[in-house]
Structures are given as C-alpha cells and as structure tokens.
C-alpha cells in the first residue's frame, strides 16, 4: 500500500521529532566537548561550535585516571554480560521446557529480585562482602551486576525461546540430541536476537551502575567510569569542558560496540539459522 503525501509528511515529521529528542542531548554533549570554556558557559548557547579545542580531552586523558576507569568499566561490563548470558540461557530454557515442582511459582518469584529496591540491600551486602573479602574488588561489582540483571534476563530469554517453533526442537529430539545440544546448537542460534538483547541490556546496566560501585569500591584505581567521573567533576566547582569530554568519552565505546559489533554479532549468529 502506497502512502499518501500527508501520511508521509506525518510519518517523517514524527521521525524527525524522535530523532531530535534522542539525538540533541548527544549533539549537545559532543559539540560542547570541543568548545573553549567561555563558549561552553555562555548564557546564550551556541548550537554549532564557534570555537574548536581538544584541551578538555587532553586534560581528561593526561591529568585524570579516566583511562583506568575506562578499562575497569569495560572489564566489569564484559564479564557481567558474559556471565549473565551464560546463566540466563540455560535457566530460561529450564523454565521454558523442563517440568519440575514449583516451576511457575519460581518463575514469577525471580522477578521479585529485580523489583527489589537496591538501596535496601546495600548495607547488608557491604557487610557480607566485607566478611568474604570482596570489598574493593571488581569481582564484587560483577557479582552485583549479574545478580540484578539475571532475573529480567531470564524473563527476556524465555520470551524469545517461546517464539521458536516446537517442530524444530522435536526434530532434534527425534535425531537423539540431548538437552544441552538442543539448547546450544538449535535454540541458541535461533534466539540470537534475544541473546543480543540480553547482552545489550546487561552491558548498559553494568556500564551505568553507580550505587554499588560507589560504595563497594574504595580505591581510586578500581573505580568504574560513573563513580570515578563523579569525583573528577568535583562538588563546588565544575569544569564544564572536562565534564562534557568525559561524557563523550564514556559514551563512544558503547555506541561503537552496539552500532557495529552488535549488528555484526546479531546478523552473524542468525545467518542461516532458520531454513
């Protein structure tokens, strides 16, 4: 069906509005990071930079521990993502296919952990981690991220599993494939978009996690970007150029990862999965 001119106008107008809402903050941050300080703090803002400088990025990478925060964040987010996906996939498959007592109740119950206010468990978790020697370790952050991302990831993954035609699984069973092979060789490639979604969800949640990272990590060398960056900015005096440069530098790895690697990841896994 061909769209009429008014329909197209409404459609593209809507797209432009959505694009502006999503893109303007990014534009603002990225262009601000290359402006000289006076232009940044000007009361009348400039949409397009009237000046150009890389001084904020130089300061960010030469005078702060931002590179260390970046490495810590990438490490914590990647480990959290891999472990969450590795646990969510078999757990979701078990809830989807296997029969065991209390399955339905347990399936609903795990989401409670996701709905739990994190601030409530902050102090008890600190005490527990202190007892087992996990304070000031990146491992503690990975455990926390996995613990909070896993329930929702299981729910997401199970929803994707339920979209796979049962006949495909039955054909594998007839061929004598065990559950592990069915999950990894048959189901996983078919729900690759679901795996990618869970991975993206977990990565972003780990990348931006602030509360636990700020309390469980004590030393500067182990801080992640959100916490380390908050310290760089300061309280009473704000270096706006440094703030914008840091925000840009913190966003770029995520954008690159999911704009290119993410697309390749999804298309590569799904290619030829369903004949």
């Amino acid at each position: 069906m061909k769209r009429t001119l008014p329909q197209s106008f409404v459609l593209y107008s809507g797209l432009v509005v959505v694009l502006l809402i999503i893109g303007l903050p990014f534009w603002w941050v990225i262009t601000g990071s290359i402006k000289v300080p006076r232009e940044i703090i000007a009361r009348v803002p400039t949409m397009f930079p009237q000046s150009f400088t890389l001084q904020h990025f130089e300061k960010l990478f030469q005078s702060t521990d931002f590179p260390a925060y970046l490495v810590n964040s990438i490490g914590v987010a990647l480990f959290s993502t891999v472990i969450t996906v590795a646990l969510a996939l078999p757990a979701a498959y078990a809830f989807f296919r296997m029969r065991f007592p209390g399955r339905a109740a347990l399936y609903r119950l795990i989401l409670l952990a996701y709905a739990f206010p994190t601030i409530v468990v902050l102090i008890p978790i600190y005490g527990f981690f202190a007892k087992v020697g996990l304070i000031d370790t990146r491992t503690s952050l990975v455990i926390i991220n996995v613990a909070f991302a896993l329930p929702f990831s299981i729910w997401m993954m199970r929803s994707f599993l339920s979209t796979v035609p049962r006949e495909i699984e039955e054909a594998a069973v007839i061929d004598g494939a065990p559950a592990r092979v069915i999950l990894l060789r048959i189901m996983a490639p078919l729900i690759a978009p679901g795996i990618a979604s869970v991975a993206i969800f977990t990565f972003i949640a780990s990348w931006t996690e602030y509360l636990f990272a700020s309390v469980l990590i004590v030393s500067d060398a182990r801080r992640t970007i959100p916490v380390g960056f908050a310290g760089i900015i300061g309280q009473y005096q704000i270096d706006w150029g440094l703030l914008l440069a840091g925000a840009t530098a913190a966003t770029i790895p995520v954008v690159i990862l999911f704009a290119f690697v993410g697309r390749w990841f999804v298309s590569g896994l799904t290619e030829g999965a369903v004949k």
């Binding site: 102090i123 600190y126 005490g127 007892k131």
Partner: peptide
C-alpha cells in the same frame, strides 16, 4: 557507617 560496621 557500613565500613565501620564491617570493620573496614
């Protein structure tokens, strides 16, 4: 307070 309670 959490750190003092945990002895750290």
């Amino acid at each position: 307070p959490a750190a003092f309670a945990a002895g750290t």
